[in-house]
């Protein structure tokens, strides 16, 4: 089975220290005011005494490297794609021109246009670090080790082990568009209704919708040429004669 890199997060272990967010920012040179990952907070109400079970929750997150990545569908060039080998959703910086189509297409708001690179940006599981045998920065730095990263299809990996062990109770954040996210929460991650809808920009829809017409027009033109060519090759001599006779 191919890999599926994913995060299995024990949200109840998160203390909202922002270590993961800071580590990501440094590791990936994320510009000021922009973030590749986050900790969402379910405030709860401060209630003195025995705290209710639905108390404050912290939910670490980032790009969920979905099974059905709507962002990939919004990209006309394949600059963002789901890597067949690792299952990660990748941005090819060299091919991305920063048109921004993919940004509203992510219902989790995981994407942004990097203000310095002027290209789409988001969590990519720190491939540079992994090439050195290191864990993604957020996972490596996490004080309570709430974030666990790995191939969930590999039962030997820590992530795979946790994934299998907790399969029945794993929670995913449900967006209005079901993208089948590969970020799994063990324990109550709190807020689960924050994700929105995947919005493919009108320009991209127009391009998708117009593609058959364009193909049709080119096809018609091609048919016309074919008709002319066949006339030239098979019909012309007789008719020319007729014409000459007339």
């Amino acid at each position: 089975m191919a890999q599926q890199l994913a995060m299995v997060i024990d949200a109840t272990k998160c203390i909202d220290c922002k270590g993961c967010v800071a580590a990501c920012k440094v590791a990936n040179n994320v510009p000021e005011g922009q973030w590749r990952n986050w900790i969402k907070q379910d405030e709860g109400t401060p209630t003195p005494g025995v705290l209710p079970t639905a108390k404050t929750r912290f939910q670490p997150g980032a790009c969920m490297h979905c099974e059905n990545p709507t962002c990939v569908d919004a990209c006309p060039t394949g600059a963002t794609y789901k890597d067949k080998e690792t299952g990660a959703v990748i941005i090819n910086d060299a091919l991305c021109i920063g048109c921004g189509n993919c940004i509203p297409a992510c219902p989790y708001n995981a994407r942004f246009r990097n203000a310095v690179k002027r290209k789409a940006d988001k969590c990519n599981y720190c491939p540079e670090r992994r090439a050195h045998g290191l864990l993604p920065a957020c996972v490596d730095t996490c004080p309570t080790k709430a974030r666990v990263f790995g191939d969930i299809n590999d039962p030997e990996s820590e992530a795979g082990r946790l994934f299998r062990k907790n399969k029945a109770k794993l929670v995913q954040v449900a967006a209005k568009t079901d993208t089948k996210p590969n970020m799994y929460y063990i324990g109550d991650p709190g807020l689960q209704d924050w994700a929105g809808e995947a919005v493919i920009p009108a320009s991209m829809i127009a391009m998708k919708e117009s593609a058959p017409f364009i193909k049709g027009i080119v096809g018609l033109s091609g048919l016309g040429v074919l008709a002319m060519l066949s006339r030239q090759l098979f019909v012309s001599s007789d008719e020319n004669k007729e014409n000459d006779d007339a």
């Binding site: 991209m204 117009s210 091609g222």
Partner: peptide, 24 residues
């Protein structure tokens, strides 16, 4: 980004139509 994204669309349409004529 809106302008860029619409540019992609127009680029595509423009090329498509010109190409249809180009064949003839």
């Amino acid at each position: 980004v809106g302008i860029v994204s619409w540019s992609i669309f127009l680029h595509f349409i423009g090329v498509g139509l010109v190409f249809a004529g180009l064949l003839v």
